[in-house]
Write a protein that binds this DNA or RNA. Structure first.
Lengths: 226, 226
DNA sequence: CGCTCCTGTGACAAATTCGTAACCCGGTGA
DNA sequence: TCACCGGGTTACGAATTTGTCACAGGAGCG
């Protein structure tokens, strides 16, 4: 579920945006009423999109934006700037600074929704959507890496495939034959200890989290659901 | 140098856009006057951005857009839709379909430039920059030079190409076959030690940073992500 | 033309991975 | 109680993959 940070000092605007977005999509919304708290929240929460009003008390929106772009933690977060209609110079300054989008109030609720959605899609299109996260596990199909609680774990090619096969269907028991087919390409019921050997090796490498892989006696194995 | 496809049947619009963009940035511009040729060009040239007028003869812009999004070759190309002012329904339909941006004519030339620029930045962080920086590495595509912690390292042509191929996708494991294709143009699975030999030579020249190139056994190689 | 450098090839060494087979243990059913 | 089944474990050797090296041919330069 994407997280959206709404930065506006006017409560009715925040309310309007909040209602608009929640009516049409399933987002987690966070609100900030001033620049400083917006920056703190952005750094802490790493929202997927920021809706940033330019007319803020104390620290104005453009300054907030500059700060966002200067901080490695927040520089990649897409930002939609909001402000009063007709302020072309302001608009251009925002775009000059690298804003992802710009909308003038009052905006069409549907347009806002669509722009947020498209921005999320565009961002996800370029992101490592190949990463599967489950509890402390983070499995990246692009880099063929496993991170466990943030620590890299060396897996062999077969181990990676096996873990991937299991983590893709958490909570689902996979028959031994299915796993043998998926990972090794065995198409018939054959008698082999290969799967068990690799399960053991995998469990060893996973240390305490090795018990995330559960044995279903008489059937196969199952990756613990989060 | 990014490629921009301008799709508009009106010559003065194409001219305006062309002049606007060329005045401010170094782009390769391609023009199309109708939907069919736009699609053909997009598939062949894979532009970095498409400026798509919605009022086209024969095949309208929305249909062109749908086709772009349905084709794996073009679905990832960012599209800015252009049309007459005030057509909110049309605007929403475009955004509904997933357009990356929407501008109403007449548009501010500067705004157009900025939106194109920002879109390019978001989708290709390094595409229009000739210098790729990653940690201590600074690779200049124009001078074919590598700086490592500020010190120039002599690379042969092949070594440079190989390092560039890897550094362009940090953290991504690239199959041996893919690297052989990219750097040597080999198109089939062949048995060769060439890649490994060059990897070894590259690692030697990189000294302590040679371990930025990681071996992914059974797959290929990966440049360490920053 | 001679020299130097670059490049790719093929042979061999080193390292790693993998699968097998034997053995063990616990649970279940007759 | 006993036999059997299924999964856990271990050790070993084979297979595969990657690293390394030396050499030869080609390209480029003076």
């Amino acid at each position: 579920m994407p997280t959206i940070l709404i930065v506006d000092d006017e409560e009715d605007i925040r309310e309007l945006i909040s209602v608009t977005l929640m009516r049409r999509e399933d987002y987690k919304l966070i609100e900030a009423t001033d620049g400083l708290s917006a920056l703190a929240i952005a750094r802490e929460e790493r929202p997927d999109v920021i809706l940033l009003d330019l007319m803020l008390p104390a620290m104005d929106g453009l300054t907030v934006f500059r700060n966002l772009r200067e901080d490695a933690r927040t520089k990649a977060i897409p930002v939609i700037m909001l402000t009063a209609r007709g302020r072309l110079e302001e608009k251009l300054t925002g775009l000059e600074l690298g804003a992802d989008d710009y909308m003038a109030k009052p905006f069409s609720p549907k347009e806002l929704t669509l722009r947020v959605r498209n921005l999320l899609r565009r961002t996800n299109r370029n992101a490592h959507s190949s990463v599967i996260v489950s509890g402390p596990f983070s499995l990246d199909k692009n880099s063929l890496k496993l991170l466990l609680d943030g620590d890299a774990i060396d897996l062999t090619s077969t181990e990676f495939k096996l873990l991937l096969s299991m983590i893709e269907s958490p909570g689902i028991t996979q028959e031994r034959g299915d796993l043998l087919k998926k990972v090794w390409g065995y198409s018939d019921l054959i008698q082999t200890r290969t799967l068990d050997t690799h399960i053991k090796r995998l469990r060893e490498k996973l240390g305490p989290y090795g018990n995330s892989i559960e044995t279903v006696r008489g059937s196969g194995y199952r990756f613990l659901e989060e």
